[in-house]
Simulated scan of single mutants.
Amino acid sequence: MGTFAGHALPGSFFLIFGVWWTIQIFIRYYSSIKHHIKFTSSLTFPCHCGRLKNVPLQPCLIIFFTVVGFSLEIYTGTSDGHLSEPGNAHHATMYFFFGVMAVIDLMVHFEVTLPKDVEYAIAAIAFFVEWILFEFHLYDRSQLDVLVHTLLNYVVAANVLSILVEMKYRGKILAPLFRSYMVCLQGTWFWAIGFILYNPNPNAEKWNEEDHEQLMIATIFV
């Protein structure tokens, strides 16, 4: 994941689903007002696209993204048949838990009997695992690298909090909107980190990763 593409992929993942959730939350909210029914949020939303209405599009897309991400991390981190890059192992673990979250969402879609709110519990665990992995992911790195990933970790922690809040207040629209906003923010953060640390433009001026003023600027960019 120590590349621009390695940050752009999860950044796109979080951005796409953050925007998707935001749109679906508003659709459900205004539909509930129109039909005079109680608004109730969820982690999985159906697609309102004709024939795809009954297709579990969201969990299937998440599974696709996580399989691609997991496979790339294992492939690029493997040397002589052994996983030689601990950082890649961290990222692969993150993708794995989001894949588990998607499988649970798939079971919810097909109305498999599950404990109440289990999808929220698994989603909170997935973000919590991501938070723990990034917390212990920054040893022996430059000040700039540590800073931008530490700021990212604050957002990941807020994602855990947002899911727990939503699980408690599923009838309030602000709870799921808080969750979708934090997921979008995490996506933009990944993209910003990619440009700051691994700018794909060969002519771009490189950041001084130990300069205090540039550290301050990075907090604004991210």
Score class of each variant (00 low, 15 high):
3 T>C: 05
5 A>I: 11
6 G>F: 13
7 H>T: 04
10 P>N: 02
10 P>Y: 04
17 F>L: 12
17 F>V: 04
17 F>G: 07
22 T>Y: 07
29 Y>S: 00
32 S>M: 02
33 I>K: 15
35 H>Y: 09
37 I>M: 05
38 K>F: 05
40 T>I: 14
42 S>F: 08
47 C>S: 14
47 C>D: 15
47 C>W: 04
48 H>R: 14
63 I>V: 06
66 T>I: 00
66 T>W: 00
69 G>F: 09
79 S>H: 03
80 D>W: 07
82 H>D: 14
84 S>I: 14
88 N>C: 11
89 A>I: 01
89 A>Q: 11
90 H>I: 01
91 H>N: 13
92 A>R: 03
94 M>W: 07
97 F>N: 02
103 V>Y: 00
109 H>T: 08
110 F>G: 12
114 L>T: 09
125 I>V: 09
125 I>Q: 06
127 F>C: 04
128 F>A: 13
129 V>L: 11
129 V>T: 13
131 W>A: 02
132 I>S: 09
132 I>R: 09
134 F>N: 02
135 E>Q: 11
137 H>V: 02
139 Y>I: 07
140 D>F: 00
142 S>W: 10
144 L>V: 03
144 L>Q: 13
145 D>W: 15
146 V>I: 13
149 H>Y: 02
154 Y>D: 09
155 V>Q: 06
156 V>S: 09
160 V>G: 02
161 L>H: 08
162 S>I: 07
168 K>I: 10
169 Y>K: 10
172 K>G: 00
177 L>T: 02
177 L>D: 00
178 F>P: 06
179 R>Y: 13
182 M>G: 00
182 M>N: 08
182 M>F: 12
183 V>A: 13
187 G>A: 01
187 G>C: 04
188 T>F: 15
188 T>I: 14
191 W>R: 00
197 L>M: 09
201 N>Y: 07
212 H>S: 15
212 H>Y: 06
213 E>A: 12
216 M>E: 13
220 I>V: 08
222 V>N: 10
